[in-house]
Design a protein around this nucleic acid. Structure first.
Lengths: 244, 244
DNA sequence: AAGTGGTCTAGACCACCAC
DNA sequence: TGGTGGTCTAGACCACTTG
């Protein structure tokens, strides 16, 4: 413990920031490749002559910056590049992921027909009690679950929608089967922590940083079609939008 | 310490999640108003028969959710509502804040003329070495610093821009003085932690959650006008965009 | 001067995962 | 079964802010 005094390295700040910088350098230099495992917390603590609490502070910093992520109790891993995502476009998640050289996967967790509650009525413009098909999906990139979503579909506007295969692109389904081009779209998003139903579905701890994204789509006549609510892990995406 | 065993409250999970829920309830019930101070960490620890480390875990959760924020070493405070922000619009920060019933402030921290480096050249389409006016500002809502930004202006397209008062709306300046309507705009944003130059400028700890937003604007001829780089505190804004 | 959060120690036990 | 992160204890000293 005593030899820390003579460690006159670059930063004279807190230990955990020095540990953070050291790991960040290793990531930037390619010593640590995307998705590779970091040394365990106990090893990091020992090799820096400090304790686990301090090592975890450094790891939490890197996690907040989106440079590393944790997987269950398996360890800490280097984050791969963010997926570039344009929420204003009708697009296929799978096509987009493939176009960026990654491997997508979609799991349909649940499909139910429900009635619009007050919250949904306010978001969609439907009346309370109107029928809605609720679709719950989880999506992965390279085997890592990166988002869960709730999709609320206007059952009257899309009759029979609940009978389709929801692991393919919804957007293609709407266009090809219903001859539908989405016109108006309202998008809202903000950073927040993922809490319990979603955190558990993604296999992360409650409190993990995320991005909450909603999209409300209408047809040419302004009729509500789809309300989409997405919970992303914060280090997995970069939003990109072109205007005009 | 021993009496914790009989504390058979709602959640049987970790202590810090119970403390989190208890504080979250007080915020939702209005017992804790926006911008009011929470009890100190030591008080929270004692009143929950636990230690500061655990109390801080609970506070960190609420901070990650955007429900509370910290101010220097003064304490923890309840977050006010998020500012609704549309980065695709030419708009005045001040007008927008006022329209939402809040009090805005802008501080110009620095104005310099620089030459485009490789990074700026790639972002703007200018050549390396082209002249750019760099404007560094900090903006507040109700006295809390919520973002710092770097604005890079095309000095050739906006001659004399560096002589103006930068505490007013840049967008109005461009329209009224240069007769300029911005046409194409590329926006990119992702959640990340705020690190040192920006964290310090905002008076927060390195590692505080933030949202990084960039906007690149061009005129009708596609000529680069402005590249804006914004660092927001993550709990202070909600992005909202309407398409078509 | 007193109180606050910021950092840190040196341990401990637990739940879960991989071997 | 051994190693991982997840949670927790019971303290400590420091830097800074506030009255």
């Amino acid at each position: 413990m005593r030899e820390r005094e003579q460690e006159q390295s670059s930063a004279n700040g807190p230990i955990y920031l020095r540990v953070r910088d050291q790991i960040a350098d290793q990531i930037e230099n390619g010593l640590l490749q995307p998705n590779s495992r970091l040394p365990s917390e106990r090893v990091l603590a020992e090799s820096n002559h400090t304790t686990r609490v301090t090592a975890r502070l450094a790891l939490a910093q890197l996690e907040a910056e989106g440079r590393i992520y944790r997987s269950n109790r398996r360890g800490w891993f280097v984050s791969p590049p963010r997926l570039v995502y344009n929420p204003t476009e009708d697009y296929s998640f799978s096509d987009n992921v493939v176009a960026q050289g990654r491997v997508p996967a979609t799991e349909t967790l649940d499909v139910t027909t429900i009635e619009a509650n007050a919250w949904l009525a306010a978001k969609t413009g439907l009346a309370e009690g109107d029928p809605i098909v609720r679709l719950h999906r989880r999506r992965q990139i390279d085997g890592r679950s990166v988002l869960v979503e709730n999709i609320y579909l206007n059952a009257r506007r899309l009759p029979g929608i609940e009978t389709f295969d929801f692991n393919r692109s919804l957007w293609k389904l709407m266009r090809e089967h219903y001859g539908l081009e989405l016109a108006r779209k309202q998008i809202e998003m903000f950073p927040t922590a993922l809490v319990d139903p979603q955190a558990e579905a993604l296999g992360v701890n409650a409190g993990t940083a995320g991005l909450y994204v909603t999209r409300c789509s209408r047809d040419n006549e302004g009729c509500f079609v789809e309300f989409d609510e997405e919970f992303w892990l914060h280090d997995t995406l970069s939003i990109q939008v072109d205007v005009r």
